[in-house]
Every structure is written in structure tokens, then in C-alpha cells.
């Protein structure tokens, strides 16, 4: 099996689906000839032709709206929004339209589309290339939200998203495109090639939506994370010397409640991580779910580690990014309570 980084794995997923299904096509800003600013669609136009992988005007509302129209016709468009920070012009089309076609037409019209977009910090991108807007989508009835954390999952989840009959927001943690990142920014960067999840089959396979993965088993504490924070969680658990169970949620809506409950019932303690700002972040939903489902098993208050409630500042990348120091502190607080 070839070792792939996340970019190559996503590229492979698109390649597989373009080959398999003539109704699949992909487009977005700089996606065609150039292959995307992160190169996820590299070579796809050359291989599959101009009408299957192409550049669009710089209009995110247009990109999403056109995909909705195509979806209504019966295609399965996969669109790229160059950075999640630029998805807001498309928000109305996503919230009022893509999310509701099925409901308001009683299933007569649907929008089986996938919106891929790189998100998250750790790259000195400043406030307009670092945001984590997942909660803006998980809050919307009718959108599925998916976040991979490894090349293997990225490919399997993207294929599952494309094959899914509902609109899926597919958030790609760009900091870990080229290698896992555990938050220790002063250590040498690791390539994916050394990681077991970089072994990616070349052909078709899926990782089902709505299923979490237990990446580290443990008895004392449950960590719920997704995207880049999964790797921060693993490193932090190791360095804190805590017998923590790390769950990679992979899909935020619909979330794998069974995996969460099984783990928290076992450990009685829970720490929730995300890069996004804290207030009304997806972590708040997770806290509520854990509290509703596991109240009698909890032995400590649930901890949240998140981005500060400020825009993402350029100069303070590592003061802002919720790295291992803050995660370990939260784990200790949960253990000591």
C-alpha cells in the first residue's frame, strides 16, 4: 500500500470517485489547471477533463449555489472553498438552501453535494486563514459535518461524503495535510510517511459517516477531539502520563453518541478539545450531550480546551493555538477534581 499524506489521500478519493461515477465533478477557485492552492485536485483536470475538474469565478455563494442546482439535477458535485474563512459568502446558500431542499420539498429535491474546505490554525495564516467555523454548520439542521484526522480516514470519509445523499461540509485540517502535528511547534515536523494511517489503499473504500474512532484506549479520562486536536490529545495524554482514552469523533453531525457514552461511562471524566473559539463552540454541544447521557457516571466537571474568544492573531500563533500545555492542564484538572 502506498504511503500518502492527507493531500494525496484526498486527491485519491476524488480520483476514485471521478473514475467510478460520471455524475461526480469537482470545481472551485484555482482547482482546475493549477490543482488547488493546497494541490488536492492536482492532476485531476488533466486526467478527467476540463468539465469534470475546473476553475470557478471567485464567488463562494455562486460555487455553492451552482452545486445545489447540479445536485438537484442528479449530479454529485464536490466543491472546494479555498479556505474555510471564505465560506461565509456562501452561508445563506448552505443554511437556507442546501440544508433544507429535502425538507421543504418533502424529498422531491435534494442536494447530494460535498463542500470541501481547509480549516484551522497552526500555519501563521492570521485571522483569515486560520478559523475553525464547524459550529456554524453543526448548528444547522440538514447539514452533515465531517473532519478527518489522518490520510486513511480522509480518503474513506471523503468517498463516504460524496456517496452520501445529503449535503456534507467536509473540513480539512490544513495544518496536518503534510504530517501529523501534536502542537509542539518547536519540534521538527513529522511527515505522514512514518504514521501507520498513511497507508492508504489505492482503490475505493469508505469510512462510514457518523462513526468515531478510539485512537487510544484508557480507563481514567475520555478526551473528545477532531482534526488536528486529535494529535495534540494523543501527545498530551502520553506526556501527562494519564491513562486517557482518546476519541476521534470524525463526524460531528451526526455524532457517534454511543462511542462517547461508552467511553465516559467507563472513565467518568471528560475533556473536550477544539481549535475554534470557546463560546458557543461545538464543545458546548458535546458538554451538553455528555451531561445528558452520562450525568450519573461523571466524577468531575467536564473540561473544555478551545481557542480564545478573539479573532486568530497572526503574531500569537502559539499563544492562541490550544497546544499540549493547556490540554495537559485541563487533563490534570479533570483528574484532580
Amino acid at each position: 500500500m502506498p504511503a500518502m499524506n492527507m493531500i494525496q489521500a484526498l486527491n485519491s478519493a476524488l480520483d476514485v470517485m471521478l473514475t467510478k461515477d460520471p455524475n461526480v465533478l469537482t470545481f472551485g477557485e484555482d482547482v482546475g489547471f493549477f490543482g488547488g492552492v493546497f494541490r488536492v485536485t492536482d492532476g485531476l483536470q488533466k486526467k478527467h477533463g476540463l468539465t469534470r475538474c475546473f476553475d470557478t469565478p471567485i464567488g463562494e455563494a455562486g460555487i455553492v449555489a451552482v452545486a445545489i442546482g447540479m445536485g438537484a439535477y442528479g449530479l454529485r458535485p464536490v466543491v472546494e472553498i479555498q479556505f474555510a474563512d471564505y465560506i461565509y459568502p456562501a452561508y445563506d446558500q448552505l443554511v437556507s438552501e442546501a440544508a433544507r431542499l429535502r425538507y421543504r420539498s418533502a424529498g422531491d429535491f435534494t442536494a447530494p453535494m460535498t463542500v470541501r474546505t481547509p480549516y484551522g490554525g497552526g500555519i501563521f495564516g492570521g485571522q483569515t486563514h486560520s478559523q475553525s467555523p464547524e459550529a456554524l454548520f453543526t448548528h444547522v439542521a440538514g447539514l452533515k459535518t465531517v473532519v478527518p484526522s489522518t490520510p486513511y480516514d480522509a480518503k474513506g470519509l471523503l468517498i463516504a461524503a460524496i456517496e452520501d445523499d445529503d449535503p456534507v461540509i467536509f473540513l480539512e485540517p490544513k495544518r496536518i495535510y503534510n504530517g501529523p502535528f501534536d502542537g509542539y511547534h518547536d519540534r521538527p515536523v513529522q511527515p505522514w510517511a512514518k504514521h501507520p494511517a498513511s497507508e492508504v489503499p489505492e482503490g475505493h473504500y469508505t469510512v462510514p459517516l457518523g462513526k468515531a474512532a478510539v485512537l487510544r484506549e484508557g480507563n481514567d479520562l475520555t478526551v473528545l477531539a477532531y482534526g488536528t486536536m486529535v494529535h495534540v490529545a494523543l501527545a498530551s495524554a502520553h506526556d501527562a502520563g494519564i491513562d486517557a482514552e482518546v476519541i476521534d469523533l470524525r463526524t460531528l453531525v451526526p455524532v457517534d453518541i454511543e462511542a462517547i457514552v461508552a467511553s465516559v461511562e467507563k472513565t467518568g471524566r471528560c475533556v473536550i478539545l477544539h481549535e475554534a473559539t470557546r463560546t458557543s463552540g461545538y464543545g458546548a454541544e458535546l458538554v451538553a450531550l455528555v451531561q445528558e447521557h452520562c450525568f450519573h457516571h461523571l466524577e468531575a466537571p467536564i473540561e473544555r480546551v478551545a481557542g480564545w474568544d478573539t479573532p486568530y492573531p497572526h503574531a500569537f500563533e502559539w499563544d492562541y493555538f490550544p497546544g499540549p500545555k493547556r490540554v495537559i492542564e485541563a487533563m490534570r484538572r479533570a483528574m484532580e477534581a
Partner: peptide
Amino acid sequence: DPLKGRQLPIM
């Protein structure tokens, strides 16, 4: 930096 390091260069 008058913008206190908040903005990407050139902004």
C-alpha cells in the same frame, strides 16, 4: 506594529 501583530503581513 501599529496593528499589534493581529493582521497578516500587508493588511
